[in-house]
Amino acid sequence: MSGIEKMRVLYDLHMHSTSSDGMNTPTELVRLASERGLAGMALTDHDTVAGVRAAETEARLAGLDFIPGVEISTRADGKDIHMLGYFVDPDNKLFLERLAGLRSVRDQRNELILERLQQLGVEITLDEVKDRGGRPLGPGESVGRPHMADVLVRKGYASDLRDAFDKYLAEGAAAYVSPPRITPVEAADWIREAGGIPVLAHPGLYGDDELVRTVLEAAKPAGIEVRHPDHMSDDEERYRKLAEEYGLLTTAGSDYHGVRQGKVFHGELGAYTVEAAVVDTLRQLSQQ
């Protein structure tokens, strides 16, 4: 079997489009996934499903299996925790209203971060952030810290994206702000109520495995994202064992946000994948 044929049974289950903080449109992501020989993909924008229908249509034309998804921002024990949702209904009215509320919190956070930056003598505006390099916001779309990082680099306040996050935007950095959010339990419940299956995103980024255990026990997701660009090999091994202990699925995704300032953020699309069997199980769970 050739390398391309092997890739045809693989899925990338974590990526972001211009509907949140990615650089590629939903349709462009589908084309990239097809070009890289994937069997399918999930679009998991932050707190929005605005790009799902466009991606779904393009995937049908490209012959790709498409999973409607989302990544919900939550807060637990003073840390930002993200919950992925797969096979959510993008037309569920209550779910859409709930996501709109989350984006409102994100907007508040953006304003607070910009206020902090101004106090630090860093002059960037919300209009500059929303411009997104000439791609104005559409209905249901949102901006995030990567958009701010772009502006910080362009205006000379940081040397690159990583520098922008390290200095100003990462958790614990000078301008970092996190207003009250819903809990991981609420996010998992919302996903299930929208017909989807919750999976805990990139647990290695939280730096607290006891908190990860607490979230798993309380929110009861169906899986853990084990393979992720920011996980080292020992992280993967640890979370595989944790998944086995709790009887959970192990998933993977590139968390692809596109190319910013010449660098891929986080991982290259298609570089972190799962076998079709994992997707089949997620689909079956969503139909129960």
Rank of each mutant, 00 (worst) to 15 (best):
D160T: 05
P139C: 04
V9C: 08
E245G: 12
P68D: 13
G22W: 07
H82W: 05
L211R: 02
V212R: 08
G85E: 07
E128W: 07
P139F: 02
M41D: 04
A55W: 02
E210K: 15
R154F: 01
V143H: 01
V264D: 14
A194L: 03
V52A: 04
A149D: 01
G63M: 05
A201G: 08
L10I: 10
K220F: 00
R8E: 14
H266E: 14
M41P: 03
G258Q: 14
A187P: 00
E123N: 13
L126F: 06
E217W: 07
Y86M: 04
V278F: 07
V177H: 04
T250S: 11
A277D: 15
P146Y: 00
E97G: 12
R227L: 14
P179S: 09
G78V: 02
A50E: 00
E225H: 03
E268R: 09
G253H: 11
E56S: 11
V279L: 08
R162M: 02
G121V: 05
A187V: 01
K79D: 09
G134M: 03
F87R: 13
D255M: 12
E275W: 07
G133C: 02
L64F: 01
G37D: 11
G69T: 09
E245K: 14
R53W: 11
G140Q: 09
I72F: 08
R238N: 11
V153D: 00
D150E: 13
G63C: 05
H16S: 10
E35K: 12
K130M: 12
M7G: 06
M41Y: 06
L152D: 00
D91R: 13
S34F: 12
R145F: 01
I182T: 11
H82M: 04
R103G: 01
A218Y: 05
F66W: 05
S159G: 12
D235L: 07
Y176W: 14
L211W: 02
G258F: 14
M232V: 13
Y157N: 11
G172N: 02
T273Y: 04
S142D: 00
P184I: 03
E56I: 02
T44P: 09
A50N: 00
I191F: 01
M232E: 13
H257K: 15
N110K: 00
T44I: 07
V264Q: 13
E236N: 14
V70R: 10
G101V: 03
T44L: 08
G253R: 12
L64M: 00
E5G: 07
V279E: 06
T273R: 06
R154G: 01
D235W: 05
G270L: 09
G85N: 08
V30T: 06
R103L: 06
G51H: 08
D91N: 13
L211E: 05
D160H: 12
S286R: 07
D107V: 04
I182Q: 08
T183A: 07
P136N: 09
T48Q: 07
E171M: 10
A218P: 04
V143I: 14
P26H: 06
H16C: 11
R162C: 00
Y206Q: 00
D208R: 10
L13I: 10
H257I: 15
S20F: 11
I113L: 07
A187K: 03
Y157G: 11
D235Y: 12
M15R: 04
E244H: 14
G207K: 11
E225C: 01
Q284F: 03
P139T: 03
Y11F: 15
A187S: 02
R145I: 00
Y239P: 12
